[in-house]
Nucleic acid binder design. Structure first.
Lengths: 220, 220
DNA sequence: TAGATTGTTAATCGATTAACAATC
DNA sequence: TAGATTGTTAATCGATTAACAATC
């Protein structure tokens, strides 16, 4: 309770470690040193060891890390070892695309899709019939929902987010181009696609102007 | 040439400033101080002033910043004041959703959509007919393309990225869940949706364990 | 054992925040 | 002018990298 949480810089890197380890596993690589992994991932070996040691000692001196074990452990840290239920609110193009996305692979299962447009009612997306938003409260109260994905228009996003909070949702994956005003007890992860494109725009228009590479493997 | 580029931490914050200023503009707010903006955006006034002064002095002592002027200037820094052409490679759910997204608003125009599946050929998305990938090289060489959006399966992403580089594309917006191996002259901005969801998963499963809030307005 | 590589402490680097003189 | 607020320098904080003793 009194100790400082792990910095978001570290958390953001975990999925990338997980991805690289998954690929090593597919290629039947049994063990790997922080040095070897650092070369593949284009980061420092120090950073890898520091990052991992936030969560415990997963390696062995003189040997390195067992790929399968480390992969599993990072999966557990990220909560990918249990099935988590997700609902999608907003069944427009993006909402439907996400419903069709293969999130099972990382333990997430879409169990409900909602929209306000009556013309979409009952339409099946990825085998799930679209429900109307007025059924949302009942649905949330009768199901265990871990994450609510918000793919509604900007003008509706804040109102819905507040309702979600009221109904007990504590994690929102927000694709609406706005900041949500919810209490600190609710986790919000924003995916602002237009802002992502803007930073790409800046970078390629200013490439070559700076001394160092602008090419980063992180999503910045 | 010899000076250090502006840090990516600063660049990442610009779109959010742009968004807040746009909203102030809509509400007919004429001027704003860094202090007032800092309260709305939940950042420090120091950070706002430091960030902006990387690009020049946009404010006036004793007055603050003119909202419209600052909005326009940040737009120019991000390159939103000119129309930029974009193509989308991969016309699956996500590719089609992005084709329908309103990027005009920030100056981006989708002028081509490509896929390898012959069953999609000629199908119109957002008024644009899907073309086959074997037409890609010719299309790129006869059009000015600023950004190529990659929404193809993981297994095809690297091959296509290398071809895009060869054909002269210098900015790739990558949605495939893999790192691309292109030269440093090509800007890559990754959007790894599964990894975004993983960090949300970590955060809400570990909420309350740390001293400070995990709720951030940045996409971390 | 000798070599390799971790876990961890110390040093460096960069980013954020505070402070304040300049000035509108 | 007096008050407000910037632009900018200095101080702090945190994150990254380097170094190395511990140990497999």
């Amino acid at each position: 309770m009194s100790e400082r949480g792990i910095s978001s810089a570290v958390i953001r890197r975990l999925p990338r470690y997980y991805r690289y380890l998954g690929e090593l596993l597919e290629n039947n690589v049994v063990r790997i040193s922080s040095k070897e992994l650092s070369i593949r991932m284009k980061v420092t070996a120090s950073q890898i060891r520091q990052d991992l040691n936030n969560f415990g000692g997963f390696g062995q001196q003189g040997y390195g890390y067992n790929v399968e074990y480390l992969f599993e452990e990072i999966g557990k840290i990220l909560g990918l070892n249990t099935i988590q239920n997700m609902i999608i609110i907003g069944a427009g193009n993006l909402g439907q695309a996400l419903a069709n996305y293969d999130f099972d692979r990382i333990g997430f299962r879409v169990i409900g899709i909602f929209d306000a447009n009556p013309r979409l009612e009952g339409l099946a997306v990825h085998g799930i019939e679209i429900k109307m938003v007025d059924e949302l409260e009942e649905f949330i109260k009768t199901h265990e929902i871990h994450v609510a994905t918000l793919t509604v228009p900007k003008k509706n996003a804040r109102t819905i987010a507040s309702q979600l909070e009221e109904w007990g949702i504590c994690a929102i994956w927000n694709f609406a181009p706005t900041d949500l005003h919810v209490s600190d007890d609710v986790c919000v992860k924003n995916v602002h696609l237009d802002e992502s494109l803007m930073t790409l725009s800046y970078n390629f228009r200013n490439r070559g102007k700076e001394k160092y590479s602008y090419h980063s493997y992180m999503d910045d």
